[in-house]
C-alpha cells in the first residue's frame, strides 16, 4: 500500500465565487481517472461572503479529507489576497494559480482594515511557481463572469497528472447542459494560457 502518492489540491476564494463547483470538477476528474478521492467543503455561515476553502485529495488510498499544512501540490485562488491567506497549505515549490481579481472585504470598506496595494509583489515573493492573471476578465470575454472558476481550473489542471479528456468529461457532467459549451471553452482557454 502506497500512501505517499496522495495528491492534494486546495481551492480558495470568497463565498459565492463558485468554489464548490470547481472542487466538484476536480474530485470527479480524479475519480473518473480511477483514484480514491476525498474532498472537504465549507457550508453554512462561512459561505455568506466570507473567505472559503475547498480541499481535494486523491491517490490509491486516501485517509484524511483535509489537506495537511505544507502538502498541497496546487493552490488555486479565485481572489488575489486569498492565496496569501492559505499559503501555508502549499508544498514548497507547488503550483499557485491566482485570479488577479480583488474583492474588497467589508472590513476594508468600513475602514477597519486595509487592502494591500502591493498584493502582486507579495504573491511573487511568497510563491516560486506562480501564475497570476485576470480570470474574471477572461470569463467576461467568454460571455459570463461566473466561469472564472473554470478558467482558473484550466490553468491549474496543468499542474496535476490527470488526463485532459477526463477533465472535459467531468466538466460536462458537473454543469447544466445549457452551460456546458461555455464551461468547456473556459477550461480550454485556461489550459491554453498555461501551455
Amino acid at each position: 500500500m502506497n500512501r505517499q502518492d496522495t495528491q492534494s489540491v486546495v481551492l480558495v476564494g470568497v463565498g459565492g465565487q463558485g468554489i464548490l463547483l470547481a472542487s466538484e470538477i476536480v474530485a470527479q476528474t480524479a475519480m473518473k481517472a480511477g483514484y480514491d478521492v476525498k474532498t472537504n467543503e465549507v457550508h453554512g455561515m462561512a459561505q455568506r461572503g466570507g473567505s472559503v476553502i475547498a480541499q481535494i485529495r486523491y491517490g490509491s488510498q486516501v485517509n484524511s479529507p483535509l489537506v495537511a499544512k505544507g502538502t498541497a501540490r496546487v493552490l488555486g485562488a479565485l481572489e488575489r489576497i486569498e492565496a496569501l491567506r492559505y499559503a501555508d497549505y502549499l508544498t514548497p515549490g507547488g503550483l499557485v494559480v491566482v485570479n488577479s481579481q480583488a474583492i474588497t472585504p467589508v472590513t476594508v470598506s468600513m475602514g477597519a482594515a486595509t487592502y494591500p496595494d502591493n498584493a502582486e509583489d507579495m504573491l511573487q515573493d511568497q510563491f516560486e511557481n506562480l501564475i497570476y492573471f485576470d480570470a474574471a476578465q477572461k470569463a467576461i470575454e467568454l460571455g459570463n463572469i461566473r466561469v472564472a472558476n473554470v478558467v482558473l481550473l484550466g490553468v491549474l489542471s496543468t499542474g496535476l497528472d490527470l488526463p485532459a479528456e477526463t477533465w472535459r468529461k467531468s466538466i460536462a457532467t458537473c454543469v447544466k447542459s445549457t452551460y456546458q459549451e461555455l464551461n468547456l471553452k473556459a477550461f480550454e482557454e485556461g489550459r491554453n494560457m498555461a501551455a
Binding site: 470568497v14 463565498g15 459565492g16 455561515m45 462561512a46 459561505q47 455568506r48 461572503g49 466570507g50 473567505s51 495537511a68 499544512k69 505544507g70 489576497i81 486569498e82 496569501l84 491567506r85 492559505y86 499559503a87 501555508d88 472585504p105 467589508v106 472590513t107 476594508v108 482594515a113 486595509t114 487592502y115 494591500p116 507579495m122 515573493d125 511568497q126
Partner: peptide, 20 residues
C-alpha cells in the same frame, strides 16, 4: 515547526461572513 502561519497573514484584511 509545521504550525507557522503564512508570511503575509498580518497584512491581510479579515474577511468574515457578512449579510449578502
Amino acid at each position: 515547526c509545521g504550525m507557522s502561519s503564512p508570511k503575509y497573514i498580518d497584512c491581510l484584511p479579515a474577511r468574515p461572513p457578512v449579510l449578502c
